[in-house]
Nucleic acid binder design. Structure first.
Length: 211
DNA sequence: CGACCGATTGACT
DNA sequence: GTCAATCGGTCGG
């Protein structure tokens, strides 16, 4: 735990350089990507600094899945879901929130993994500012939900379609292996269809998982 | 065009 | 526990 903790900024940079996930990772099966993203570091370069969160909760949305935005085919909104794996699909919902997904598999498929929660590792004070975080609130509320983490990482529609193999937003292999017995599984949150599929994955015992 | 509603959150009873 | 906020996407007429 906490590979990045207590390391200097230079150490962050060197750790990042060698371990950024490459295209092949995202081209894998969507369920595999959803599980393997657990424990990895979601990184956003923001105003010359790094915002870093350890991914602790994901949900898979597959092309043959009635709960997926892509189920009824390509539209302007879900266009990015059909791009090559490794792009960022950001959608706007409830008139005020953004949620971010990692596009998976091959071009034209329409699969993605929703990132639902991260454990903040670096850049906490910036995240708090971005969320206008009330210090009387429990710290877990900083990033324990898909729209919360988008706000904390300043991810909005301007990032829809960003390439995770680029420099702005990317994911780094933490070398932390989450054993299968430590991965919780459940139905996905907030959907009506596809409830029989247990495609929400989270790190058991992590206090940073959404409520 | 108008109506409906959402892969959510925060405030409040 | 309940519920309003708030607006772009989607779909039916």
């Amino acid at each position: 735990m906490g590979l990045l903790k207590k390391k200097s900024k230079e150490s962050f940079v060197s750790l990042i350089e060698g371990n950024k996930l490459e295209r092949d990772f995202y081209l894998q099966d969507t369920i595999v990507v959803a599980k393997e993203l657990l424990g990895k570091y979601f990184i956003r370069k923001y105003k010359g600094k790094y915002l870093i969160g350890k991914i602790v909760e994901t949900e898979a949305y597959r092309d043959d899945d009635p709960a997926s935005h892509a189920y009824n085919g390509r539209t302007r909104r879900n266009e990015v879901m059909f791009w090559l794996g490794g792009h960022l699909y950001v959608y706007f919902t409830y008139g005020m929130h953004y949620c971010c997904n990692v596009v998976t598999e091959s071009e034209g498929k329409g699969c993605a993994v929703l990132i639902r929660a991260v454990e903040p590792i670096e850049g906490l004070s910036t995240m708090m500012k971005l969320r206008s975080f009330n210090s009387s609130s429990k710290i877990f509320n900083l990033t324990n939900g898909p729209a919360k983490l988008c706000q904390a990482f300043d991810i909005t529609k301007k990032n829809n379609g960003d390439d995770l193999c680029g420099e702005k937003i990317f994911i780094v292999d933490s070398k932390i292996v989450i054993k299968n017995s430590k991965i919780g599984k459940s139905q996905r949150i907030g959907i009506k269809d596809g409830l029989e599929k247990k495609w929400r994955f989270y790190i058991k015992n992590s206090p940073w998982v959404s409520k």
